[in-house]
Design a protein around this nucleic acid. Structure first.
Lengths: 193, 193
DNA sequence: CCTCTGATCTTTACACTGTCAGGATTACGG
DNA sequence: CCGTAATCCTGACAGTGTAAAGATCAGAGG
């Protein structure tokens, strides 16, 4: 019985999985590379070969997180009746992701550690941005509308996730939804109202 | 000539000043307490007596940063012609602060290190929030308008500061201003349009 | 089948970090 | 003038990231 084969087999993936657990438990600011290695049952210097340094691991994790973010929005958009409904559903998805994975959200949007010159990360971020542009164009909007929608969605999600908007937390589910719908709705290009 | 008096005199203030420099240079994630002590010309354990641990220092710094944030908004609001103009000027102030002091901005809005049960920090944050509510009430708005305005301002500032909105950075000053005015304007309660 | 080359992982080491315990210094009220 | 408490320092410890060097193994070429 091979207790511990010297070569892990798929250490890169195992490290990414362990890193995500570490991130959700300790947050970006408490993230420890050695702890990640321990989780994966491997020596503390093993990650270096796959990701370089800690920022390299966080960069890969951020790229993965970005696509995971986009997936959440995609799922939420399913069943939309029109373009406007889809944009609002995307806003809900934005908030849902921030609340479900706050540490990953902060890694992606509010951390200086990921290397934003990494092609993988750039590609993942660009996919999300292009999707957003598509949403706005389907509404006949332009660049200003992209900025408006993104700002409203991001600001709302970031503030609620960071517990700055306490008055909002203690509201009922229905009231919350109506509020989100209102805030996102204002950011959309005004046409069919 | 007293080269180094054993008692600093006003070490607490000196440490806060040094901490702010450290923060702007290294960011929240690279912040080092020992480095702060070195900047203040004091032993590495000296800060403990004034702030407890590192989070304590960052908490005090966050409280100071919050009032500094509010000050920036206040200055920007001077000379407003009406309530609507004042709200938009506040939005400009929000962005200005984020761009001028990105690390402090992130410490305040996107960090888990400050202790948000600290009375000082709570008071400083509440002052800013109450001011925002005042802005919206002067416009005849309610709670939904507070959320909308704050979300738009915060989202816009956070995204631009974090360089996620690249298409916006390379615009002219005039175009930028028009865009900000448009985004903030949408979040305001619609009455006088 | 054998060797050897490169990829993968470990061990060791070093500088740095935050925090704690204990000691030194000094301001200040009695 | 003295003692007490506040202030600051020294020393120590565990934990961190990263670099260098060695160990192990997979897979290709002979």
């Amino acid at each position: 019985m091979r207790e511990k084969p010297y070569h892990h087999g798929d250490l890169r993936a195992a490290l990414l999985a362990a890193a995500e657990i570490e991130l959700t438990e300790k947050g970006v600011e408490g993230f420890s590379l050695r702890s990640v290695a321990k989780r994966a049952g491997v020596s503390h210097a093993a990650p270096a070969h796959h990701f370089g340094d800690t920022n390299g691991l966080l960069t890969a994790l951020a790229a993965e997180g970005f696509t995971r973010f986009q997936d959440t929005l995609d799922v939420r958009e399913i069943g939309a009746v029109d373009a406007r409904d889809r944009a609002i559903r995307a806003g809900f998805g934005y908030l849902e992701f921030a609340l479900a994975r706050p540490a990953l959200f902060r890694l992606i949007f509010s951390s200086a550690r990921p290397d934003y010159t990494s092609p993988d990360l750039i590609a993942a971020a660009k996919r999300a941005y292009d999707h957003l542009v598509g949403l706005v164009e389907a509404l006949g909007g332009g660049e200003a509308d992209v900025v408006a929608l993104w700002s409203a969605s991001h600001g709302l999600a970031d503030l609620i996730m960071g517990r700055k908007l306490r008055p909002m937390v203690q509201k009922s589910q229905a009231e919350q939804e109506a509020l989100v719908r209102e805030v996102i709705g204002r950011a959309l290009p005004r046409r069919a109202e």
